[in-house]
Design a protein around this nucleic acid. Structure first.
Length: 192
DNA sequence: GTCCTGATCCTCT
DNA sequence: GAGGATCAGGACG
């Protein structure tokens, strides 16, 4: 069951939490890979840490797109990160997917990122992008249809969600926004 | 044009 | 636990 446009229209903090436990699916020529989302971060309008803080540019334009749009960007000269755009078009808010629990297409993931332990295949925003075979070509792509989409969680029992400050922000000590979420006790997250 | 910074990850020690 | 790789975007002149 695919997540609908209405789902992504909700407040970004809620989407970030609701995405935990959902499944990110990529059907690529090399194979079908599936990962369960276990860690996310919310980036809101007016947030100094957001790429959209200083308004729309060519790079961040996907963030201003309709709900359910993919926002992929290049960072640190080497890596890519994958975000899900939320709220209505013109409101630049998004959820950064930080870690996945590998579910399907494990061999395909290892071919892409290298042979390593299961819990180290997708435990970081750029690693999961590599393992899932997501590229800049997927920037601005709609997540409401194949080949790249997210399906609802099947768990009836929802695990406790832990809230923390976001990773890597300069404000660090001063950042009181608790906008990072992960499933308690999950061994596939990027960092405690 | 030039400089600086970063929503990271890997490789050492 | 620390440091390096490596480059695009944005600020400033």
């Amino acid at each position: 069951m695919l997540l609908s446009k209405e789902f992504y229209l909700q407040p970004t903090e809620k989407v970030a939490q609701e995405l935990l436990g959902c499944y990110l699916v990529h059907e690529s020529p090399e194979g079908r890979t599936v990962g369960r989302i276990v860690e996310t971060e919310a980036y809101l309008e007016g947030d100094v840490a957001s790429h959209a803080y200083r308004g729309q540019t060519k790079r961040n334009s996907a963030m201003f797109g309709p709900p359910g749009t993919a926002y992929v960007y290049f960072i640190y000269g080497r890596y890519f990160c994958f975000n899900v755009v939320t709220r209505s078009a013109g409101v630049p808010e998004a959820v950064l997917i930080r870690a996945l629990e590998p579910i399907g297409g494990i061999d395909c993931m290892r071919q892409r990122i290298g042979d390593r332990p299961l819990h180290q295949l997708c435990n970081g925003p750029s690693k999961l992008v590599t393992a899932m075979g997501i590229t800049m070509a997927d920037n601005r792509r709609s997540l409401l249809v194949a080949p790249l989409y997210i399906t609802q969680k099947e768990d009836t029992e929802s695990r406790a969600i832990v809230t923390s400050t976001r990773i890597g922000l300069k404000e660090g000590r001063g950042d009181r926004h608790l906008l990072r979420y992960y499933l308690e006790g999950n061994t596939y997250i990027s960092k405690k």
